[in-house]
């Protein structure tokens, strides 16, 4: 397969500094940002200098030229996922204005300058009505293909409070992307605050698992049958174990959630897609092949480099695939999912 048919579903474009957004802020918030102690969102969920934040010769906040030179080489289309944590700004109006500024910046500095790029709409998801407005603002712009949410939030994403966001996404035929990180104020584990970053990092897979349970068991896919969700930078090798467990739970406890009408794994297969980095792969390729087979991964995985983050080489995965499976995972699945 030629490299040029790859679609990269996770490339990061980060805001260099709060000042970057000044040209796009309304007067009131521009004055506030200049005069107050506000320096931008308070979220240390991914320090710039940790070893995974950038490859050896990459910047943790690459500019367009670096992305063009490094990430888009041999890539047909790249999806930008900006992780600016407006959700951690308690003032919801400021958060909404920051999100609008981020999105305008993405249009002017990325989408209008590089036709291979698509972007994700940053929204103040802690205020779903304001977030829905932001989705409506950009929903018909051909450069935006998804609404991006941090995996850690104040409540799990199956909760009905988020319905306005999903209604807006569905209305504009946008995907929902759930991405590593977030700083909602409560601990990143079900048992309190760990000491080390490596624990937050390793624990993030569990938060993705909790979100899958919530989306399925709280009926989000029954309320929005066309909602489609990408799980980005959360791994995927845990999917078979989660499918088995929640299917079993549903057999015993389905009277608890009568609107979950099918085995949970069916919703997962229909509505979820997973980016391939981080692989979190077993050392034995046979075990990885088993995992791929157990969850039907050829229809669920989408190629991603997670540029500029540093990860294990993905060849262990790609080497296991037939030409047909490679084509699906490297481009066809993303093309269909993001309507490219």
């Amino acid at each position: 397969m030629s490299e040029s048919t790859r679609i990269d579903c996770d490339i990061h474009n980060e805001i260099p500094a709060l000042e970057t957004l000044y040209p796009y802020l309304p007067d009131h918030w521009l004055d506030y940002c200049r005069e107050s102690a506000f320096n931008g969102p308070d979220a240390a969920d991914y320090p710039d200098s940790v070893p995974t934040a950038a490859r050896e010769d990459s910047s943790p906040k690459p500019d367009l030229t670096e992305v063009q030179d490094r990430a888009l080489k041999d890539v047909e289309i790249g999806i930008l996922n900006c992780a600016y944590r407006v959700q951690s700004v308690r003032n919801e109006d400021l958060a909404a204005s920051l999100a609008a500024a981020v999105n305008q910046w993405q249009v002017e500095h990325w989408l209008e300058k590089e036709p291979r790029l698509r972007a994700s709409i940053v929204v103040p998801s802690h205020s779903p009505p304001l977030a829905a407005k932001e989705v409506d603002r950009w929903g018909d712009h051909p450069g935006f293909v998804q609404v991006i949410l941090p995996v850690r939030a104040e409540a799990p994403y199956g909760n009905r409070r988020y319905d306005p966001i999903y209604a807006a996404a569905v209305k504009h035929d946008l995907a929902l992307g759930i991405h590593y990180g977030g700083a909602p104020g409560h601990p990143p584990t079900p048992t309190g605050w760990p000491s080390y970053f490596i624990e937050d990092y390793a624990n993030m897979a569990q938060v993705f698992q909790s979100q899958v349970i919530s989306l399925v068991c709280e009926g989000a896919f029954e309320r929005f049958p066309s909602l489609r969700v990408a799980l980005i930078e959360g791994g995927f090798t845990w999917l078979p174990s989660l499918m088995w467990r929640i299917d079993k739970e549903w057999k015993g406890l389905r009277h608890n959630t009568p609107y979950v009408r099918r085995p949970p794994s069916e919703y997962m297969r229909t509505h979820l897609r997973f980016t391939i980095q981080p692989l979190d792969a077993p050392p034995n390729p046979l075990h990885l092949a088993q995992i791929l087979d157990q969850c039907g991964a050829e229809d669920l995985l989408m190629y991603a480099s997670d540029y500029p983050h540093r990860h294990d080489n993905h060849d262990i995965l790609l080497d296991l695939l037939t030409a047909d499976q490679r084509e699906k995972i490297c481009s066809a699945n993303a093309r269909a999912f993001y309507r490219l």
């Binding site: 939030a153 799990p156 977030g182 624990n203 938060v207 919530s214 709280e218 989660l242 467990r245 389905r254």
Partner: peptide
């Protein structure tokens, strides 16, 4: 503290199924 890294879910099935 909330029983997931992303807040409190709604149902017993999420409490019970979320133990792993």
């Amino acid at each position: 503290v909330p029983i997931t890294g992303s807040g409190y879910p709604n149902h017993y099935i999420e409490d019970h199924g979320g133990m792993p």
